[in-house]
Design a protein around this nucleic acid. Structure first.
Length: 438
RNA sequence: GUGGGUGUAGCUCAGCUGGUAGAGCACCGCCUUGUGGUGGCGGUGGUCGCGGGUUCGAGUCCCGUCACUCACCCCA
Protein backbone atom coordinates (compact mmCIF):
# COMPACT_ATOMS: atom_id res chain seq x y z
CA UNK A 1 0.00 0.00 0.00
CA UNK A 2 1.36 3.34 -0.99
CA UNK A 3 1.57 5.84 1.83
CA UNK A 4 1.81 9.55 1.42
CA UNK A 5 4.41 11.00 3.73
CA UNK A 6 3.59 14.46 4.94
CA UNK A 7 6.30 16.99 4.22
CA UNK A 8 8.06 14.83 1.62
CA UNK A 9 6.50 16.08 -1.60
CA UNK A 10 6.52 13.98 -4.77
CA UNK A 11 5.45 15.34 -8.10
CA UNK A 12 3.41 13.90 -10.93
CA UNK A 13 5.15 14.00 -14.33
CA UNK A 14 3.48 17.27 -15.36
CA UNK A 15 4.59 18.98 -12.15
CA UNK A 16 8.07 17.52 -12.43
CA UNK A 17 8.35 19.01 -15.92
CA UNK A 18 7.65 22.42 -14.38
CA UNK A 19 10.23 21.86 -11.66
CA UNK A 20 12.84 20.78 -14.17
CA UNK A 21 12.25 23.84 -16.33
CA UNK A 22 12.54 26.08 -13.28
CA UNK A 23 15.77 24.38 -12.23
CA UNK A 24 17.13 24.66 -15.78
CA UNK A 25 16.33 28.37 -15.80
CA UNK A 26 18.03 28.93 -12.46
CA UNK A 27 21.11 27.05 -13.55
CA UNK A 28 21.27 28.99 -16.82
CA UNK A 29 20.98 32.32 -15.02
CA UNK A 30 23.61 31.46 -12.42
CA UNK A 31 26.03 30.19 -15.04
CA UNK A 32 25.42 33.24 -17.22
CA UNK A 33 26.94 35.17 -14.34
CA UNK A 34 29.89 32.82 -14.10
CA UNK A 35 28.95 30.91 -10.97
CA UNK A 36 30.48 27.43 -10.78
CA UNK A 37 28.54 24.44 -9.49
CA UNK A 38 29.36 22.11 -6.66
CA UNK A 39 27.42 19.41 -4.86
CA UNK A 40 28.09 18.62 -1.23
CA UNK A 41 27.27 15.29 0.43
CA UNK A 42 23.86 14.93 2.06
CA UNK A 43 25.30 14.40 5.53
CA UNK A 44 27.52 16.46 7.76
CA UNK A 45 29.00 15.63 11.14
CA UNK A 46 26.35 16.43 13.71
CA UNK A 47 28.56 18.88 15.55
CA UNK A 48 29.21 20.93 12.39
CA UNK A 49 25.47 21.43 11.88
CA UNK A 50 24.69 22.18 15.50
CA UNK A 51 27.65 24.49 16.08
CA UNK A 52 26.98 26.89 13.23
CA UNK A 53 23.24 27.18 13.00
CA UNK A 54 20.60 27.16 15.65
CA UNK A 55 20.83 24.56 18.36
CA UNK A 56 17.07 24.07 18.34
CA UNK A 57 16.92 23.47 14.61
CA UNK A 58 15.15 20.20 13.86
CA UNK A 59 17.84 17.97 12.40
CA UNK A 60 17.56 14.38 11.15
CA UNK A 61 20.33 12.28 12.62
CA UNK A 62 21.67 9.44 10.47
CA UNK A 63 22.87 6.17 11.92
CA UNK A 64 23.63 2.71 10.54
CA UNK A 65 20.87 0.24 11.31
CA UNK A 66 23.51 -2.22 12.45
CA UNK A 67 25.07 0.27 14.86
CA UNK A 68 24.75 -0.51 18.53
CA UNK A 69 21.85 1.20 20.29
CA UNK A 70 24.29 2.83 22.63
CA UNK A 71 26.34 4.31 19.80
CA UNK A 72 25.37 7.97 19.38
CA UNK A 73 24.55 9.31 15.90
CA UNK A 74 27.47 11.25 14.50
CA UNK A 75 26.02 12.26 11.14
CA UNK A 76 22.97 14.28 10.23
CA UNK A 77 21.22 15.35 7.02
CA UNK A 78 22.03 18.96 6.16
CA UNK A 79 19.23 21.46 6.82
CA UNK A 80 20.58 24.13 4.46
CA UNK A 81 23.37 24.56 1.93
CA UNK A 82 25.22 27.44 3.54
CA UNK A 83 26.70 25.62 6.50
CA UNK A 84 27.93 22.66 4.38
CA UNK A 85 29.34 25.18 1.91
CA UNK A 86 31.32 26.91 4.64
CA UNK A 87 32.72 23.54 5.68
CA UNK A 88 33.56 22.72 2.03
CA UNK A 89 35.39 26.03 1.59
CA UNK A 90 37.56 25.45 4.64
CA UNK A 91 38.29 21.90 3.57
CA UNK A 92 39.27 22.89 0.03
CA UNK A 93 40.64 26.36 0.66
CA UNK A 94 44.00 25.41 -0.85
CA UNK A 95 42.41 24.29 -4.13
CA UNK A 96 39.77 26.95 -4.67
CA UNK A 97 40.31 30.24 -6.46
CA UNK A 98 39.06 33.25 -4.52
CA UNK A 99 36.80 35.05 -4.67
CA UNK A 100 34.89 31.82 -5.23
CA UNK A 101 31.40 32.04 -6.67
CA UNK A 102 29.24 28.96 -6.70
CA UNK A 103 25.66 27.87 -7.28
CA UNK A 104 24.25 24.78 -5.64
CA UNK A 105 20.82 23.19 -5.99
CA UNK A 106 20.10 20.30 -3.64
CA UNK A 107 17.59 18.72 -1.33
CA UNK A 108 17.74 19.71 2.33
CA UNK A 109 15.89 18.23 5.33
CA UNK A 110 14.29 19.74 8.40
CA UNK A 111 12.21 17.99 11.05
CA UNK A 112 9.61 20.74 11.48
CA UNK A 113 5.89 20.00 11.24
CA UNK A 114 4.85 20.42 7.61
CA UNK A 115 2.35 23.03 6.46
CA UNK A 116 1.56 24.87 3.27
CA UNK A 117 4.88 25.83 1.70
CA UNK A 118 6.78 24.16 4.48
CA UNK A 119 8.34 20.75 4.07
CA UNK A 120 10.60 18.22 5.70
CA UNK A 121 12.41 17.49 2.45
CA UNK A 122 12.75 20.33 -0.01
CA UNK A 123 14.96 21.80 -2.70
CA UNK A 124 17.02 24.93 -2.21
CA UNK A 125 18.85 26.87 -4.89
CA UNK A 126 21.77 28.82 -3.45
CA UNK A 127 24.33 31.22 -4.78
CA UNK A 128 27.21 32.32 -2.59
CA UNK A 129 30.44 34.21 -2.99
CA UNK A 130 33.33 33.79 -0.56
CA UNK A 131 36.71 35.44 -0.46
CA UNK A 132 39.81 35.14 1.64
CA UNK A 133 40.11 37.70 4.47
CA UNK A 134 38.09 40.47 2.82
CA UNK A 135 34.97 40.40 0.63
CA UNK A 136 34.12 43.85 -0.80
CA UNK A 137 30.50 44.90 -0.44
CA UNK A 138 29.89 45.05 -4.20
CA UNK A 139 29.51 41.27 -3.97
CA UNK A 140 26.43 41.80 -1.78
CA UNK A 141 25.02 43.74 -4.70
CA UNK A 142 25.93 40.95 -7.11
CA UNK A 143 24.16 38.09 -5.33
CA UNK A 144 21.04 40.21 -4.93
CA UNK A 145 21.11 41.17 -8.58
CA UNK A 146 21.67 37.64 -9.88
CA UNK A 147 18.87 36.21 -7.76
CA UNK A 148 16.56 39.05 -8.80
CA UNK A 149 17.24 38.21 -12.45
CA UNK A 150 16.67 34.52 -11.78
CA UNK A 151 13.30 35.20 -10.12
CA UNK A 152 12.27 37.69 -12.78
CA UNK A 153 12.45 34.93 -15.40
CA UNK A 154 10.09 32.56 -13.57
CA UNK A 155 6.31 32.25 -14.12
CA UNK A 156 5.46 33.45 -10.61
CA UNK A 157 3.73 36.44 -8.98
CA UNK A 158 5.87 39.54 -8.52
CA UNK A 159 8.56 39.00 -5.88
CA UNK A 160 9.52 41.79 -3.50
CA UNK A 161 13.02 41.77 -2.09
CA UNK A 162 13.17 43.16 1.42
CA UNK A 163 16.74 44.07 2.13
CA UNK A 164 18.27 45.34 5.32
CA UNK A 165 21.64 45.42 7.02
CA UNK A 166 22.36 44.21 10.50
CA UNK A 167 24.93 46.94 10.96
CA UNK A 168 22.15 49.51 10.67
CA UNK A 169 20.09 47.85 13.36
CA UNK A 170 22.98 47.08 15.66
CA UNK A 171 24.67 50.46 15.15
CA UNK A 172 21.39 52.26 15.70
CA UNK A 173 20.67 50.34 18.89
CA UNK A 174 24.20 50.93 20.19
CA UNK A 175 23.90 54.61 19.33
CA UNK A 176 20.68 54.65 21.35
CA UNK A 177 22.52 53.15 24.29
CA UNK A 178 20.77 49.76 24.19
CA UNK A 179 22.70 47.14 26.15
CA UNK A 180 21.81 43.98 24.21
CA UNK A 181 21.23 44.75 20.49
CA UNK A 182 20.82 41.08 19.52
CA UNK A 183 17.93 40.55 21.94
CA UNK A 184 16.21 43.66 20.58
CA UNK A 185 16.68 42.42 17.02
CA UNK A 186 14.96 39.15 17.83
CA UNK A 187 11.96 41.02 19.22
CA UNK A 188 11.80 43.39 16.24
CA UNK A 189 12.01 40.41 13.87
CA UNK A 190 8.48 39.40 14.99
CA UNK A 191 6.97 42.65 13.72
CA UNK A 192 5.11 41.06 10.81
CA UNK A 193 3.16 38.81 13.19
CA UNK A 194 2.91 40.76 16.42
CA UNK A 195 1.35 44.25 16.41
CA UNK A 196 3.68 47.21 17.02
CA UNK A 197 1.98 48.06 20.32
CA UNK A 198 2.82 44.65 21.70
CA UNK A 199 6.38 44.83 20.41
CA UNK A 200 6.72 48.10 22.26
CA UNK A 201 5.66 46.43 25.51
CA UNK A 202 8.13 43.60 24.91
CA UNK A 203 10.93 46.08 24.30
CA UNK A 204 10.19 47.92 27.51
CA UNK A 205 10.21 44.56 29.30
CA UNK A 206 13.69 44.08 27.84
CA UNK A 207 14.76 47.11 29.87
CA UNK A 208 14.48 49.78 27.19
CA UNK A 209 13.26 53.24 28.10
CA UNK A 210 10.03 54.36 26.42
CA UNK A 211 12.01 56.82 24.33
CA UNK A 212 14.37 54.07 23.13
CA UNK A 213 11.52 51.72 22.31
CA UNK A 214 9.86 54.44 20.24
CA UNK A 215 13.06 55.01 18.29
CA UNK A 216 13.51 51.28 17.70
CA UNK A 217 9.98 51.09 16.29
CA UNK A 218 10.43 54.25 14.24
CA UNK A 219 13.48 52.68 12.60
CA UNK A 220 11.60 49.48 11.87
CA UNK A 221 8.83 51.39 10.12
CA UNK A 222 11.16 52.62 7.40
CA UNK A 223 10.50 50.95 4.04
CA UNK A 224 11.62 52.60 0.80
CA UNK A 225 12.11 51.53 -2.80
CA UNK A 226 15.10 53.84 -3.22
CA UNK A 227 17.96 55.17 -1.10
CA UNK A 228 15.78 57.76 0.64
CA UNK A 229 15.81 55.50 3.70
CA UNK A 230 19.22 57.00 4.49
CA UNK A 231 17.77 60.46 5.12
CA UNK A 232 14.87 59.00 7.08
CA UNK A 233 17.23 57.13 9.38
CA UNK A 234 19.46 60.15 9.80
CA UNK A 235 16.38 62.21 10.71
CA UNK A 236 15.94 60.02 13.78
CA UNK A 237 19.09 61.64 15.14
CA UNK A 238 21.02 58.58 16.26
CA UNK A 239 24.73 58.37 15.54
CA UNK A 240 27.13 55.47 15.51
CA UNK A 241 30.04 54.43 13.31
CA UNK A 242 28.50 51.04 12.57
CA UNK A 243 25.21 52.66 11.62
CA UNK A 244 26.91 54.92 9.08
CA UNK A 245 28.73 51.94 7.57
CA UNK A 246 25.52 49.91 7.33
CA UNK A 247 23.62 52.74 5.66
CA UNK A 248 26.30 53.11 3.00
CA UNK A 249 26.33 49.36 2.31
CA UNK A 250 22.57 49.08 2.09
CA UNK A 251 22.33 52.11 -0.19
CA UNK A 252 24.81 50.43 -2.50
CA UNK A 253 22.83 47.17 -2.56
CA UNK A 254 19.48 48.89 -3.13
CA UNK A 255 20.87 50.96 -5.96
CA UNK A 256 22.61 48.02 -7.59
CA UNK A 257 19.77 45.51 -7.31
CA UNK A 258 16.99 47.82 -8.50
CA UNK A 259 15.98 48.07 -12.11
CA UNK A 260 15.35 44.39 -12.79
CA UNK A 261 11.98 44.17 -14.56
CA UNK A 262 9.36 42.18 -12.69
CA UNK A 263 11.05 42.41 -9.31
CA UNK A 264 10.45 45.01 -6.59
CA UNK A 265 13.43 45.88 -4.42
CA UNK A 266 12.91 47.59 -1.08
CA UNK A 267 15.07 48.70 1.79
CA UNK A 268 13.03 47.31 4.69
CA UNK A 269 14.47 47.99 8.11
CA UNK A 270 12.14 45.52 9.82
CA UNK A 271 14.11 42.64 8.41
CA UNK A 272 16.56 41.26 10.96
CA UNK A 273 16.60 37.45 10.37
CA UNK A 274 16.77 34.90 13.10
CA UNK A 275 20.04 33.22 12.19
CA UNK A 276 22.90 34.54 14.24
CA UNK A 277 25.69 34.14 11.67
CA UNK A 278 24.64 37.10 9.54
CA UNK A 279 26.83 40.17 10.02
CA UNK A 280 25.71 42.72 7.42
CA UNK A 281 23.31 42.64 4.49
CA UNK A 282 20.22 40.47 5.03
CA UNK A 283 17.64 39.47 2.43
CA UNK A 284 14.07 38.24 2.51
CA UNK A 285 11.66 37.90 -0.40
CA UNK A 286 7.90 37.75 -0.51
CA UNK A 287 5.54 36.92 -3.37
CA UNK A 288 2.64 39.25 -4.16
CA UNK A 289 -0.56 37.54 -3.03
CA UNK A 290 1.36 34.76 -1.26
CA UNK A 291 2.70 36.71 1.70
CA UNK A 292 1.43 34.03 4.09
CA UNK A 293 4.08 31.65 2.75
CA UNK A 294 6.73 33.80 4.38
CA UNK A 295 10.03 34.41 2.70
CA UNK A 296 10.71 32.32 -0.38
CA UNK A 297 14.27 33.49 -0.82
CA UNK A 298 16.56 34.60 1.99
CA UNK A 299 20.17 35.09 2.86
CA UNK A 300 22.80 37.60 3.72
CA UNK A 301 26.37 38.43 4.53
CA UNK A 302 28.27 36.15 6.92
CA UNK A 303 31.76 37.42 7.67
CA UNK A 304 32.75 34.79 10.19
CA UNK A 305 30.92 31.58 9.29
CA UNK A 306 33.98 30.01 7.66
CA UNK A 307 37.11 30.42 9.65
CA UNK A 308 39.91 28.27 10.90
CA UNK A 309 43.37 28.84 12.37
CA UNK A 310 44.74 29.89 9.01
CA UNK A 311 42.22 32.56 8.21
CA UNK A 312 38.69 33.65 7.65
CA UNK A 313 36.55 33.44 4.55
CA UNK A 314 33.80 36.05 4.57
CA UNK A 315 30.82 35.24 2.37
CA UNK A 316 27.52 36.49 1.10
CA UNK A 317 24.76 34.32 -0.29
CA UNK A 318 21.11 33.94 -0.99
CA UNK A 319 18.95 30.86 -0.99
CA UNK A 320 15.76 30.22 -2.94
CA UNK A 321 13.20 27.77 -1.57
CA UNK A 322 12.28 26.08 -4.85
CA UNK A 323 9.74 23.74 -3.25
CA UNK A 324 8.11 26.53 -1.25
CA UNK A 325 7.72 28.41 -4.49
CA UNK A 326 6.43 25.62 -6.70
CA UNK A 327 4.17 23.44 -4.60
CA UNK A 328 1.66 26.11 -3.45
CA UNK A 329 1.49 27.81 -6.85
CA UNK A 330 0.26 24.56 -8.42
CA UNK A 331 1.86 25.26 -11.76
CA UNK A 332 1.33 22.64 -14.41
CA UNK A 333 2.70 21.87 -17.84
CA UNK A 334 1.00 21.70 -21.21
CA UNK A 335 1.88 18.01 -21.39
CA UNK A 336 2.90 15.16 -19.15
CA UNK A 337 5.57 13.79 -21.49
CA UNK A 338 8.36 15.44 -23.47
CA UNK A 339 6.97 14.18 -26.79
CA UNK A 340 6.10 16.74 -29.44
CA UNK A 341 4.85 14.10 -31.86
CA UNK A 342 3.01 10.81 -31.57
CA UNK A 343 3.48 8.66 -34.65
CA UNK A 344 0.33 6.65 -35.26
CA UNK A 345 0.52 2.95 -36.13
CA UNK A 346 -1.81 1.70 -38.91
CA UNK A 347 -1.42 -1.96 -38.10
CA UNK A 348 1.23 -4.01 -36.36
CA UNK A 349 2.70 -5.13 -39.70
CA UNK A 350 3.59 -1.53 -40.56
CA UNK A 351 4.96 -0.57 -37.14
CA UNK A 352 8.46 -0.44 -38.68
CA UNK A 353 7.30 2.39 -40.97
CA UNK A 354 6.12 4.37 -37.96
CA UNK A 355 9.41 3.71 -36.16
CA UNK A 356 11.26 5.01 -39.24
CA UNK A 357 9.30 8.27 -39.19
CA UNK A 358 10.04 8.66 -35.49
CA UNK A 359 13.76 8.11 -36.07
CA UNK A 360 13.90 10.79 -38.72
CA UNK A 361 12.12 13.32 -36.50
CA UNK A 362 14.34 12.51 -33.53
CA UNK A 363 17.43 12.92 -35.69
CA UNK A 364 16.49 16.60 -35.88
CA UNK A 365 15.88 16.96 -32.15
CA UNK A 366 12.11 16.58 -32.17
CA UNK A 367 10.98 14.46 -29.22
CA UNK A 368 8.84 11.69 -30.67
CA UNK A 369 7.10 8.55 -29.51
CA UNK A 370 5.28 5.83 -31.41
CA UNK A 371 1.74 4.76 -30.52
CA UNK A 372 1.73 1.73 -28.19
CA UNK A 373 -0.85 -0.19 -30.22
CA UNK A 374 -2.51 -0.08 -33.58
CA UNK A 375 -5.84 1.05 -32.20
CA UNK A 376 -8.40 2.99 -34.20
CA UNK A 377 -6.99 6.37 -35.20
CA UNK A 378 -9.54 8.12 -33.05
CA UNK A 379 -8.14 6.25 -30.06
CA UNK A 380 -4.58 7.12 -31.00
CA UNK A 381 -5.48 10.80 -31.23
CA UNK A 382 -7.11 10.56 -27.81
CA UNK A 383 -3.95 8.91 -26.49
CA UNK A 384 -1.97 11.95 -27.62
CA UNK A 385 -4.55 14.44 -26.41
CA UNK A 386 -4.65 12.97 -22.93
CA UNK A 387 -0.90 13.45 -22.58
CA UNK A 388 -0.93 16.89 -24.19
CA UNK A 389 1.16 15.77 -27.18
CA UNK A 390 0.34 18.45 -29.77
CA UNK A 391 0.97 16.55 -33.03
CA UNK A 392 -0.05 13.16 -34.42
CA UNK A 393 1.83 11.87 -37.46
CA UNK A 394 0.05 9.53 -39.84
CA UNK A 395 2.66 7.60 -41.84
CA UNK A 396 4.00 8.07 -44.27
CA UNK A 397 3.62 11.81 -44.71
CA UNK A 398 0.78 13.55 -42.96
CA UNK A 399 0.88 15.46 -39.67
CA UNK A 400 -2.04 16.83 -37.68
CA UNK A 401 -2.05 19.56 -35.05
CA UNK A 402 -4.70 18.01 -32.83
CA UNK A 403 -5.40 21.31 -31.05
CA UNK A 404 -6.55 23.08 -34.22
CA UNK A 405 -7.42 20.01 -36.25
CA UNK A 406 -5.24 21.24 -39.12
CA UNK A 407 -3.62 18.43 -41.04
CA UNK A 408 -0.93 18.89 -43.68
CA UNK A 409 1.32 16.76 -45.85
CA UNK A 410 4.87 16.78 -44.53
CA UNK A 411 8.30 15.22 -44.94
CA UNK A 412 9.77 13.77 -41.70
CA UNK A 413 13.19 15.04 -42.81
CA UNK A 414 11.98 18.63 -43.15
CA UNK A 415 8.88 19.32 -41.05
CA UNK A 416 9.54 21.34 -37.91
CA UNK A 417 7.02 22.37 -35.26
CA UNK A 418 6.91 25.97 -34.04
CA UNK A 419 9.62 26.60 -31.42
CA UNK A 420 7.02 27.08 -28.71
CA UNK A 421 5.91 23.45 -29.11
CA UNK A 422 9.38 21.94 -28.88
CA UNK A 423 9.26 21.71 -25.10
CA UNK A 424 6.27 21.60 -22.73
CA UNK A 425 4.95 25.00 -21.68
CA UNK A 426 4.31 26.03 -18.11
CA UNK A 427 0.70 26.84 -17.24
CA UNK A 428 -0.53 28.65 -14.16
CA UNK A 429 -3.39 27.06 -12.22
CA UNK A 430 -6.05 29.18 -13.95
CA UNK A 431 -4.57 28.48 -17.37
CA UNK A 432 -4.67 24.73 -16.82
CA UNK A 433 -8.29 24.94 -15.63
CA UNK A 434 -9.14 26.81 -18.81
CA UNK A 435 -7.45 24.08 -20.86
CA UNK A 436 -9.44 21.26 -19.32
CA UNK A 437 -12.72 23.16 -19.71
CA UNK A 438 -12.28 23.95 -23.37
C1' G B 1 6.58 19.64 20.60
C1' U B 2 1.20 21.96 21.77
C1' G B 3 -3.93 22.54 20.17
C1' G B 4 -8.24 22.02 16.50
C1' G B 5 -10.34 19.41 12.10
C1' U B 6 -10.72 15.17 8.79
C1' G B 7 -10.18 9.71 7.31
C1' U B 8 -16.03 5.75 2.78
C1' A B 9 -14.18 3.70 -5.09
C1' G B 10 -8.49 6.47 -8.87
C1' C B 11 -10.76 11.86 -7.69
C1' U B 12 -14.81 14.95 -5.20
C1' C B 13 -18.14 13.49 -1.73
C1' A B 14 -23.32 11.46 0.22
C1' G B 15 -24.74 7.70 3.63
C1' C B 16 -30.66 10.37 9.10
C1' U B 17 -32.05 8.26 15.95
C1' G B 18 -27.30 1.36 14.23
C1' G B 19 -30.54 -2.77 9.72
C1' U B 20 -27.84 -5.78 2.39
C1' A B 21 -22.00 -0.07 0.23
C1' G B 22 -24.01 4.76 -2.93
C1' A B 23 -23.66 9.17 -6.62
C1' G B 24 -21.00 12.31 -9.99
C1' C B 25 -16.45 12.49 -12.51
C1' A B 26 -12.53 9.22 -14.37
C1' C B 27 -11.51 4.35 -16.61
C1' C B 28 -12.95 -0.06 -19.98
C1' G B 29 -16.49 -2.06 -23.69
C1' C B 30 -20.58 -1.61 -27.19
C1' C B 31 -24.05 1.37 -30.32
C1' U B 32 -19.99 3.45 -34.36
C1' U B 33 -14.34 -1.69 -38.83
C1' G B 34 -9.84 3.32 -38.91
C1' U B 35 -9.16 10.95 -37.53
C1' G B 36 -10.88 13.22 -31.72
C1' G B 37 -17.34 15.44 -30.28
C1' U B 38 -22.18 14.61 -28.04
C1' G B 39 -25.72 11.12 -26.51
C1' G B 40 -27.37 6.17 -25.06
C1' C B 41 -26.51 1.26 -22.99
C1' G B 42 -23.38 -1.98 -20.24
C1' G B 43 -19.01 -2.95 -17.15
C1' U B 44 -14.44 -2.80 -13.81
C1' G B 45 -13.37 -0.85 -9.24
C1' G B 46 -14.38 -0.68 -1.69
C1' U B 47 -10.66 -5.30 4.52
C1' C B 48 -15.79 2.33 5.03
C1' G B 49 -7.50 4.30 7.87
C1' C B 50 -6.13 0.32 11.60
C1' G B 51 -7.12 -2.40 16.36
C1' G B 52 -10.41 -3.39 20.20
C1' G B 53 -15.32 -2.78 22.67
C1' U B 54 -20.93 -2.40 23.01
C1' U B 55 -24.90 -4.96 20.08
C1' C B 56 -28.86 -10.16 17.28
C1' G B 57 -26.50 -6.59 13.88
C1' A B 58 -21.44 -1.11 13.49
C1' G B 59 -19.48 3.07 7.81
C1' U B 60 -22.79 4.94 11.86
C1' C B 61 -22.02 4.46 19.07
C1' C B 62 -17.52 4.02 22.71
C1' C B 63 -12.06 3.49 23.61
C1' G B 64 -7.28 3.36 21.61
C1' U B 65 -4.01 4.08 17.64
C1' C B 66 -2.08 5.76 12.96
C1' A B 67 -2.23 9.02 8.94
C1' C B 68 -3.47 13.48 6.67
C1' U B 69 -4.59 18.62 7.41
C1' C B 70 -4.84 23.61 9.73
C1' A B 71 -2.93 26.95 13.56
C1' C B 72 1.12 27.98 17.14
C1' C B 73 6.56 27.56 17.14
C1' C B 74 10.25 28.08 13.48
C1' C B 75 11.74 28.87 8.81
C1' A B 76 13.17 28.26 2.31
Amino acid sequence: MATKLSGFPEFLPRERIVEQQVLDHLRRTFELHGFANIETRAVEPLDVLLRKGEIDKEVYAVKRLAAADTEPAELALHYDLTVPFARYVLENAGKLDFPFRRWQIQKVWRGERPQQGRFREFTQADIDIVARDVLPSHFDVEVARVMAEALAGLPIPTPTFQISNRKILEGFYLGLGVADPTAVMQVVDKLDKVPAEKIRVLLVEQGLEERQADSVLALAEIVTTDTSFVQRVEALGVEHEMLTEGLAELAQVIEGASGVDGVVVTADLRIARGLDYYTGTVFETRLAGWEHLGSICSGGRYDELAQDRKGTYPGVGISLGVSRLLVPLELSASRSVPSVVLVAVGDEESRADSDAVARRLRARGIATEVAPKAAKFGRQIQFAEKRGIPYVWFPPSSVKDIRSGDQVDADPDVWTPPTIDLTPNILTKTESLKETNS
